[in-house]
Amino acid sequence: MAYGYDISHLLSASVLVFSFLLLFQGRMFGLLNMFVMQAVCLSLTVASQAHFQNAPHLYVTAAIALFFKAGIIPYSLRRIIIRLGIYRDIETIFGVGLTLVVGVALTCLAIMTVMPLAHAQELSAREDLAFALSVILMGMLMMITRKNAISQIVGFMSLENGLVLAATGVRGMPLVVEFSVAFSILIAFFVFGLFVFRIRESFDSVEIHVMEQYRGEKQ
């Protein structure tokens, strides 16, 4: 189908666009909203892949992504934010502008890396991989540049979105891998959430640099 390639291309590109928006966002709820939008885009991408690849099990993956990433996880994070009362602006290590420039550079690097590599694959899979790698790198960038524990969780989750994007772009991805990835993400989320509360109890803050002062080893 001629338009199939265009549609999936558009959708996976929009996942990348939301990654940029995540980097740009300065407020907690805005961040969560962007994350929800990214998860919706991701699930649409996976669904379209399921349709065009004739791989019905990918619908399950799409449903998992929609349910957890766009539903439960953002909702729980929102509750955490409200309970902890951290609505204020997110501090970044260096300015938003510079972060976005680094993001663009990372996208270029991802394209340069993947494009010559996967020439045996079909076109859409190749570009999907490039998008996915960019999303992964940008998730890591977000984890590094944000000082707040909640935004680091969001960065990690968006990194995982990139992984799912990479996995579904290629044909023949078994369902069991999807399940295990989804499961491990959920576990990771629980652990993160628990830690955030514990940290808050112990240190009265979720700002990371506050915790560093309490580390016994650091002289």
Binding site: I93, L109, T113, M140, M143, I144, I208, E212, Q219
Partner: peptide, 24 residues
């Protein structure tokens, strides 16, 4: 042994970028 979480992540990140640059 005594870096902060962000510094560890930064180490992983730069190593990954370095490898990707080598591949590219």
């Amino acid at each position: 042994h005594f870096l902060s979480i962000r510094q560890y992540l930064f180490l992983v990140f730069t190593t990954l970028i370095l490898f990707l640059l080598m591949v590219a």
